[in-house]
Every structure is written in C-alpha cells, then in structure tokens.
Simulated assay, not measured.
Amino acid sequence: MSLAFEKKVAVITGGGGVLCSTMAMALADKGAHVGILDLKQENAESVARQITSAGGKAIGLACNVLDTDSLKAAHQKLSDTLGPCDILVNGAGGNHPKGTTSNPFLLEEDLLANKDLKSFFDLDPEGIKFVFDLNFIGSLLPTQVFSKDMIGRQGTSIINISSMNAFRPLTKIPAYSAAKAAISNFTQWLAVHFAKAGVRVNALAPGFFLTDQNRRLLTNENGSLTDRGNTILSHTPMNRFGTPDDLTGALLWLCSGEAAFVTGVVIPIDGGFSAFSGV
C-alpha cells in the first residue's frame, strides 16, 4: 500500500477539521496529491501547508459544499493545479443545537411544569433542515461535481462519513442520527449506481472521537468526563474515545487496490460500541 496513492489526486471536504485533516495528511503521506476544501480558507491553507512542509503536494481552498457554483470553482482550480480527482472524501458535516433536545427522555412532569427545556415538540424545522443539508446534501453535491472525473478510470473511489449514530441513534440528537443514516443508505445506493462505471463507494462510521464540536458535551473544563462522556465509555468495550489516527487504516485500505472488490460497505470504527448490548 505504500505506493498505492502515488500521484493520485484526493479531494477532502471539511478538510480543515481535526478528523479530516488527519485523513488528508495520511493520504499525502502515501503519495497522494491532496485538495483540502473547507468553508474557512485559513483552515484549508493551514492543513495544506503542513502537508507541503512535510514534502507532500497539496492545495487549500475555501469551498461551500452546499453551493454548486462554489464546488465547481474549487473543482476547476484543483483540476488545473493537481489534475482530475481519483479519491473523494466527503468529510463535511456536523450537528446544530436547533436539532437537539435538552433531555434524553420526554417526561410528562417536565411538560406540565412548563420548564425551559427543549423537547421533541420544540425542535426547530430549520435546525433539522440545516443538519440534513450539511450532512446529506453536503455529500451529494460534491459527489456530483467531483465524481465525473472518476467515471471509466481505474482505482477511483468515494468515501462518505457516516456515524455510529446511523447504527444506534443517540438520545438528544435526532437530526444528526437521521442524517447519518441517510448517508449510509446513500453510500449503498451510490455503490450500486457506480458499480459498472469503475467507481467504488464506501463509508466510515466513526464512534466517539473528541473533536471541537463535541468536547464540551463529553468533557468538563478540568478535563474530567461529563455524565454523557462516562455513559459513552461505559458502553465502549475498549474504554476510550477514538483518536484521529484510528480512522486512517480503514481509509487507506478502502481507497487502495487491496479493497478492489469492496464497495457499498459502512465500516464501524467505534471500539466495539456497536457490538455491545450494554450487559
């Protein structure tokens, strides 16, 4: 696998984030030329600089995955600089407070007491739409733009980012869980649709990783775990959160020729969370 990606062009959306930047650097370390796309130009450029300073080839560009014109402009720049896309990682995604409930369970007494809590009945449709757009449409549109480069060429693949929430929906975050379930389904559909065109489509389903988005939910200011953080680890047989490097092995394998007969799979990377019943 050490030479599997030499001179291949990999494009990563959300590439300025903790997890996706690690995946970008892993692909670059194996010889890929990497296009880092992020909503924030400075984040994309920062990751690209880390790659180029280590001897790799990369370019960082601002791009909105929900804007086709923005994606097409990024595609043109990447094509002119690096060449046609061989590997697409749809890494952009996230949650929104307006698609989240305050408590895991609906209690009648909370409703009667008129407490200042957000229940299922208070979920904001615009918040739900934001989460679905960012995760699902934000994977569909980049795929439409960049996968055209792949049709009929050898060794091309798409990696979507699903989530453990797609397997076992977490309490309090119905929009995110449902959106990631849509990603898993889309991965299978797209794998079938592209099967005769030579493009493989698979997905990673991370378990629980500490990122900027969830750190406040899982840890306190002093670094100790919140109740939710403790609950997660008690249901994770390996008894730890994932690290960004835990994603790279599966990523490199799925993108390589070693996985040439693998398409339409969603791989849990979760420390055993999905296998554990809780007892």
Results as ranks from 00 to 15, higher is better:
residue 3 L to V: 13
residue 7 K to S: 12
residue 9 V to F: 04
residue 12 I to N: 00
residue 20 C to N: 11
residue 21 S to N: 06
residue 22 T to L: 05
residue 26 A to G: 10
residue 29 D to Y: 02
residue 32 A to S: 04
residue 32 A to Y: 04
residue 36 I to L: 00
residue 41 Q to W: 02
residue 42 E to Y: 01
residue 57 K to E: 03
residue 58 A to S: 11
residue 60 G to K: 02
residue 62 A to V: 02
residue 65 V to W: 08
residue 67 D to G: 09
residue 67 D to S: 12
residue 73 A to L: 05
residue 75 H to T: 06
residue 89 V to K: 08
residue 99 G to P: 06
residue 102 S to Y: 15
residue 109 E to T: 15
residue 110 D to W: 04
residue 113 A to Y: 10
residue 125 P to F: 00
residue 135 N to S: 10
residue 138 G to W: 00
residue 139 S to P: 07
residue 147 S to W: 03
residue 151 I to V: 14
residue 153 R to D: 08
residue 158 I to V: 14
residue 159 I to Q: 03
residue 162 S to N: 06
residue 164 M to W: 05
residue 170 L to T: 15
residue 171 T to R: 13
residue 174 P to F: 09
residue 176 Y to F: 13
residue 186 F to W: 13
residue 186 F to A: 10
residue 195 A to H: 12
residue 199 V to T: 09
residue 200 R to C: 03
residue 201 V to D: 03
residue 205 A to V: 08
residue 206 P to W: 04
residue 207 G to W: 03
residue 211 T to G: 07
residue 211 T to H: 13
residue 216 R to N: 13
residue 217 L to V: 09
residue 218 L to V: 05
residue 219 T to Y: 13
residue 228 R to P: 00
residue 229 G to N: 08
residue 230 N to H: 13
residue 232 I to A: 06
residue 234 S to P: 11
residue 235 H to Q: 14
residue 241 F to D: 05
residue 242 G to H: 01
residue 242 G to C: 08
residue 248 T to Y: 02
residue 252 L to C: 12
residue 253 W to D: 10
residue 259 A to G: 09
residue 259 A to V: 12
residue 261 F to D: 12
residue 264 G to L: 02
residue 269 I to D: 03
residue 272 G to M: 02
residue 278 G to T: 06
